[in-house]
Each structure stands twice: as C-alpha cells, then as structure tokens.
Amino acid sequence: MNIDLSVKIGSLTLRNPIMLASGTVGYGNEISEFTDLNKLGAIVTKSLSLKPRKGNPPQRITETPAGMLNAIGLANVGVEVFLKEKIPFLKKFDVPLVCNIAASTIEEYVECTRTLTREETIKAFEINISCPNVREGGLIFGNDLNAVAKITDKVRSATDKPIIIKLSPNVSYIATFAKAAKENGADAVSAINTLVGTAFNIITRKPKLQNVTGGLSGPAIKPVAIAKVLEISREVDIPIIGIGGIMDWKDVIEFMIAGSSAVQIGTLNFIDPSAPGKIVKDLEGYCEKMSVEKISSLTASYIL
C-alpha cells in the first residue's frame, strides 16, 4: 500500500505530521546528530525575541511524576544573531523551518516577524503568546483574549507566510482563544503550551525552581492536551497542531484522532533525541496495518 503521510497546515504542506517543538531542539544543530531532520514534518526554533535574552536564573528544571517543570525564561540569541549564525546551518536541510517568536510588546512581535519573514528559509511563524515563565508576553497575553486578537491581527499584516498561534492551556476556554486567532487571520493554532506548576523541596521549604513556578510538560499533561485539542476541534474550524507529552506513535495517532492535523514532539527530545525519526517510521507501520491510506484522514476522526 502506498501510504501518504503528508499533512497540510494552511498553505504549508508537511511530508509527515511530526514537528519538533520550540524550546526542545534549540536551533537544530545538536539534535541533527541523532535524528535526520530531512525526514521530519517541520522543526520549530527556540523562541526568538528581538534582542538576546539571558533567561531565568538557575535552577530552571525539575522532574515531577511523568513530567518536568521548566522555567528557562525564553533564553535565546535574538533575531539578529539567529539570522547571521543559525540560519546558515538550518539552510542545509530540506525541512520546513518554523520560527517561534516571543515578545514583550505587540510592536516587538511585529518587528520580529517583519525582520524574519524576509528570510526565505523560514516557512512559517509560530507566535508564542503563552510562555508561563515570563510576565509580559507570556502569562499576560496568553490570558487576554483582546491581546491575542490584536497580536494575531498585527502579525498577520507583517507577513504573508502561515501564522500559527501557540495557545496557553492556563485559560478557562481555550476554544475562544482559537476562535480569536482564526478571526484575526491565523492559519493554525498549536495546543498546548505548558501548564503552570510548582514543586517544593520539603527539607528547605523552598521552591525547587528559582522562578517559583514553571511550565509542566511530558506525559503527565497528555490527557489535558488531548481534551484541549478536542475542545478546539469541536468548536473552531482551524488546523490544530497537537502538543503535550507525546512519547511514541500511539500518542501521535491519539492526538490526530482528537483533532490535530500535525503534532509537535517536545520533552521526548530531551530523553531520546533519536525518537522523532523512529516515530515517523512507526506511523507508516500503523497506517499500513490499519489500512489508512492518507494519515490526514485521521484528523478529527473521533467517534463521540
């Protein structure tokens, strides 16, 4: 059987639904030693801001049951260094490059997008309005429907390339945010960013993360993510990129059935950076066994 693994995110066609999530692949060079980037659907860069960001002080990471908390705080090289030093490496690959943008103001989102959109290697933008570890641009924007609408609208006018709005799960109804993104010109949404969490050291009574709170990721959040994807899928007609605790091909299939057109692998890259390539192969096996000719037919194929 000839299996078609390709999927579409707006005008962007991916050879398969496996994307690498922002903040879990840096700028591609380290992970390329373990997984052939040319075999993947797309890669999403670490969040970029206009100027370099140092990120939060240590400790930035702690493990929790079936998950981890991170409070990196958007440490990144900034747009200028990215274009000069990281793009030449990324150019060598035949994989769609999605730039994730994080900003403190609406103007900064626009300026980042405008600067980056001139670079032809960049095929789409993912707008991070939902980082739980920085105040401006993270928690505040992600929770504010008007801000999400306005950022989407302004970024839309700064680029012709597809825009993906990365949504926060730390809201009451995620579908209303997906709707605001769609109505203001977004091509897709990605869901979910991390959940806000905290862990304490019971001897010192201090938080394990210097930032006190962090973003929870990993298998622990998968059921939450699936529920959020389903909620958006049932209420808003927009392509969804499912994210949250994917550990293998079965999780990918589950996310697709719940409404995802594609998925992003995140925390798993830290544990097994060779896993994304293996998952692509495994998906083909599943489709063959289940007589699924086009993997895209799985999207929102839930039976409720």
Binding site: G23, T24, V25, G26, E30, I31, K46, G55, N56, P57, P58, Q59, R60, I61, T62, E63, M68, N70, I72, A75, T267, N269, F270, I271, P273
Partner: peptide, 14 residues
C-alpha cells in the same frame, strides 16, 4: 546542575 537533555537543547543547566 539539574538538567534534562545533557547536550544543550533544554537550556536547563544554566
């Protein structure tokens, strides 16, 4: 330092 990946992508061990 607490770290996840060990090879530079998680940025945890600052």
């Amino acid at each position: 330092c607490a770290m996840a990946c060990g090879f530079g992508i998680c940025q945890g061990c600052s």
